[in-house]
């Protein structure tokens, strides 16, 4: 039996409208942190060669600049000219997995056309220039992000969460 059509609900009139779909699951080892915030796609990328090193990589929305440096602000040697380094490539690929390429494109204000398979497809759709910026802010935001994992839970009801149903990505579950 085919599934029933979703009820025709007026999205703008819905209290429980889904505005932010849940993040698509992805492996976190290479890119433990990625966010669309402060006018940038930014995050933390693990070094491919040195387990003790991480990079902070950033794409700026609007003026389309790039930055990549180690967590102690040493510039990434792979970033020169107008080309992204492998850390930036990894970051935007993982961002497209987590948020969906359309949301990344909209946030960065890239006019995306056609089918986008990987985040790096978005890189080619505009021109970029390198503008080094500090890693400290992103690093601080990653630590704040992690601090949520240390917050104690509660057994007191949080009635406001009725506005936030746990949902699923469209077609996330296969028909069994």
């Amino acid at each position: 039996m085919p599934p029933a059509e979703s009820p025709e609900l007026d999205w703008e009139a819905r209290s429980a409208a889904v505005v932010v779909p849940p993040a698509r699951p992805r492996k976190l080892a290479k890119v433990p942190f990625v966010e669309l915030a402060e006018g940038r796609l930014q995050g933390v990328v693990s070094s491919g060669s040195d387990i003790d090193r991480v990079y902070v990589s950033q794409f700026t929305a609007g003026d389309h600049t790039l930055s990549c440096s180690t967590n102690n602000n040493r510039p990434c040697g792979g970033l020169y000219g107008d080309y992204t380094c492998k850390h930036l490539d990894l970051l935007i690929d993982e961002a497209a997995v987590q948020f969906g390429a359309a949301r990344v494109a909209r946030y960065l204000r890239i006019e995306a056309e056609g089918t986008i398979l990987h985040g790096t497809d978005l890189v080619r759709m505009t021109t970029w220039r390198v503008e080094r910026s500090s890693a400290a802010g992103v690093f601080a935001r990653f630590l704040r992000h992690l601090s949520y994992l240390e917050l104690p839970g509660t057994a007191e009801p949080l009635p406001e969460l009725h506005w936030f149903p746990a949902t699923q990505l469209p077609s996330a579950k296969a028909v069994s």
Binding site: A23, H145, L146, L151, A155
Partner: peptide, 12 residues
């Protein structure tokens, strides 16, 4: 009702 804080990458 039991609740916990989390980050966006923990889901499903």
């Amino acid at each position: 009702s039991v609740s916990a804080a989390k980050v966006d990458t923990i889901t499903g």
